[in-house]
Design a binder for these strands. Structure first.
Length: 396
RNA sequence: GGGAAGGUACCUAAGCGGCCAACAGGGUUGGAUUGUAAAUCCAAUGGCACUGCCUUCAGAGGUUCGAAUCCUCUCCUUCCCA
């Protein structure tokens, strides 16, 4: 399959498709790689599979000899992309951003070769930190209020009588400036990024550069069918353990499977169709294996699958239960649960107990005043809270 | 600068002097069922040394036996006019 065909598979919109075809031809003839920009703001400590879709497309370009320009938005992260948001997020401190930026590189490195020569990693503070107020004014002069207010998010917020802050309108301009600074030929992003990508294209044109081609990738929805986001808890982190990742994928709704197959795995369309024709559970197992294989290993995937069957289909205990040590003594059950982290508060622990969700050594305990006797050093009990959480508690 | 409407738990949103830890829906959590899918049903949903106690209804004061509810000031948001 040619590069352009593969690109089409992973994209939902290509602005300047004809231009892209010509660029690819020219690049091949002149042996000059295209500069393909992808920017990500280190606003959270975790990168998830949703982010992985454009990254995978970026890798595709890389495999074909082009140069990924990865922008870690340590400048833009301070502001935060208002896309899809109807509230302002609390501003991040430079320290938090730096912390996140480091882990981002590790996580993205699982999918993309970040070695020098085959990839360019930039931080946009390189230019934003040097701009003074008048530079900012100049940047603001690059667009108009009407143009920026066209954005869907802003429209919706204004209709709902919610605030739209001035600095939020700067975000697309900042992202556009990135494109100018790195002289991007192509920029990738999720399909909610179209507006921002367009801005880069326009700004480059104003600066006398060749406008970038904008490619957006379809959105990978979270396991519950909503937009994948950490705050919904429906995301699959690239850093997640193999068991966790496998379990998350298995909890995916059936409707989402087809998209997940095509966006989160490397499988061919034929292989995917074959899977989808079978039992949904088997298909999902195959999907989960594929995902875990890419981010961990085939062995880890096989192990995670077995573990999953053992735990949830056969309802056996997990093969390794975290062990917690406590001082010898008798404990009231709710406070012990809080102490070992199976509940956030004792009230929460009580609720679980009353709801029949707590077992000690396989026996359901419904009495909130139950005392766990761990008087002798070395004594231990197996505690289960809910379906997934286990702890082996031993007395010191 | 002038005028109007608002700020209630994770979100939406009732309550407008005692029956309020606060209606309802969403979400979340636990349970049943199941393919840890969907759908459905039940329950819980501020904290704690839990038949009680403590801290909440933007913030600070005040009125009252008693305030989320009334008054004063402050902070924040939106809308209209300039």
């Amino acid at each position: 399959m040619s590069l352009i065909q593969e690109i089409r598979r992973f994209s939902s919109d290509i602005v300047g498709e004809e231009q892209l075809v010509k660029m690819l031809e020219k690049s091949a003839a002149e042996k000059r790689p295209l500069r393909v920009k992808f920017g990500i703001d280190p606003t959270f400590p975790e990168v998830h599979l949703g982010h992985a879709v454009p990254i995978r497309l970026l890798r595709l370009f890389q495999e074909h000899g082009h140069l990924p320009v990865l922008i870690l938005g340590d400048g833009t992260a301070r502001l935060g992309d208002p896309t899809g948001r109807n509230d302002q997020r609390p501003p991040l401190t430079p320290e938090m951003v730096e912390e996140n930026a480091k882990t981002y590189l590790v996580q993205i490195g699982k999918l993309l070769d970040l070695s020098e020569g085959v990839c360019e990693v930039r931080r946009n503070n390189e230019w934003f930190s040097k701009m003074d107020f008048f530079d900012c004014l100049q940047l603001a002069a690059k667009s108009t209020a009407a143009r920026l207010l066209e954005r869907d998010d802003f429209q919706k917020r204004m209709q709902a009588n919610l605030p739209v802050h001035l600095h939020e309108m700067m975000y697309p301009l900042m992202q556009g400036l990135d494109s100018v600074k790195v002289e991007a030929d192509v920029e990738l992003g999720g399909n909610d990024q179209l507006f921002n990508l367009h801005m880069g294209r326009q700004m480059q044109e104003r600066e006398g550069q060749r406008p970038q081609v904008c490619i957006t990738t379809p959105l990978l929805l979270g396991t519950d069918g909503r937009k994948m986001s950490k705050s919904y808890g429906n995301h699959v982190g690239l850093n997640a353990s193999s068991d966790d990742m496998f379990g998350k994928v298995m909890s995916l709704s059936d409707e989402g499977m087809a998209t997940w197959f095509s966006l989160a795995t490397q499988m061919s369309t034929q292989a995917i169709d074959a899977q989808l024709a079978g039992h949904p559970r088997e298909a999902k197992d195959c999907l989960a294996r594929a995902v875990v294989t890419e981010l961990h290993s085939a062995e880890a995937a096989a192990a995670a699958s077995e573990e999953f069957v053992r735990r949830f289909q056969k309802k056996e205990k997990p093969s390794d239960v975290p062990e917690k040590l406590v001082a010898a003594g008798a404990y009231s059950l709710p406070s012990l649960m809080k102490a070992v982290g199976l509940a956030n508060t004792t009230s929460e622990a009580r609720r679980m107990i009353e709801g029949g969700g707590v077992r000690i050594d396989d026996e359901v305990i419904k009495d909130v005043r139950y005392l766990v006797a761990l008087e002798e050093s070395g004594a231990s009990v197996l505690m289960q809270a809910g379906k997934r959480h286990f702890a082996k508690i031993s007395a010191e």
